[in-house]
């Protein structure tokens, strides 16, 4: 075997093993995080967005099927479940603060969830998007499994909703802080709350990695808006005769 053939056979072996894809994913994330810090937290250099671009670039250049990549990367994906459960611990630690904010939390969840659905509908209407796409867009601000459930119920396309939901999360994580600075919202609890309500887990992840109070309020907003949105999307569709 020539050296070239030997390298090729190593590559064939590696891409069939989880180790390569796990190393690539964590490596891409570290690079993304490094660029984000170096750029003085510039929104377009968001670590999630950057690492997704790096990994997708590698897959496209080497013509690798997503399913093959996910076979390895699923071990990282799996940790999302336990990470969600473990949000209970910071929420428990900040429970007194949540209790003392009960009224603002309940009001803001209702107002914010209705706003998110209506503004999405109005903008989709302005672009005269097809009915199926509009319906797939409506539940986009809540966590993917809930959004897909709602989408299916109202006649949207669940897999399209999944894509839209993830994009929503990345935009929220990347531009949330910038928007809130512009609006001069100062309270960490209110900032996290807005990000969690409008951009679910991905936004919450961003908030949690910057400030514990913001992260906890993001998690509370994400959980409550998931339930509220599931209840009011069908109601809004009925009232507006969409």
């Amino acid at each position: 075997m020539t050296d070239e053939q030997r390298l090729y056979s190593i590559w064939v072996y590696l891409q069939a093993e989880p180790l390569f894809w796990l190393t690539l994913t964590i490596g891409a994330y570290l690079v993304g995080d490094f660029c984000y810090r170096r750029s003085n937290l510039f929104p377009l250099f968001n670590p999630v967005a950057l690492s997704i671009i790096i990994v997708s670039g590698v897959l496209l250049i080497f013509d690798i099927q997503y399913e093959r990549y996910f076979e390895g990367a699923k071990f990282i994906h799996f940790l999302l479940g336990p990470a969600t459960v473990s949000l209970a611990i910071p929420i428990y630690q900040k429970w007194a603060l949540i209790k003392s904010n009960a009224m603002p939390i309940i009001s803001a969840v209702l107002l914010g969830s209705v706003f998110a659905i209506l503004i999405t509908y109005l903008l989709a209407l302005a672009f005269s998007l097809e009915r199926e796409i509009v319906l797939s867009l409506l539940p986009r601000s809540v966590t993917a499994p809930i959004a897909m459930g709602i989408s299916e119920l109202i006649g949207g396309i669940p897999s399209l909703t999944a894509i839209i939901t993830i994009i929503t999360g990345i935009i929220g994580a990347a531009f949330g802080t910038f928007t809130l600075d512009l609006l001069r919202v100062k309270k960490m609890s209110a900032r996290g709350f807005g990000i969690g309500l409008a951009s679910h887990g991905i936004g919450t992840a961003r908030a949690m990695s910057r400030d514990k109070t913001a992260g906890v309020f993001a998690a509370v907003a994400m959980g409550l808006s998931g339930v509220v949105t599931a209840l009011i999307v069908p109601l809004i569709i009925f009232l507006l005769k969409i």
Binding site: S107, G112, F115, A116, I119, I171, G176, L180, K187, G194
Partner: peptide
């Protein structure tokens, strides 16, 4: 464009309302 505008507006609206209520 719809996702971007709606997400940024929803974050701003919700956080602004939340802070006022607090």
């Amino acid at each position: 464009f719809v996702i971007f505008s709606a997400t940024v507006l929803s974050i701003g609206f919700t956080a602004f309302v939340m802070e006022k209520l607090q």
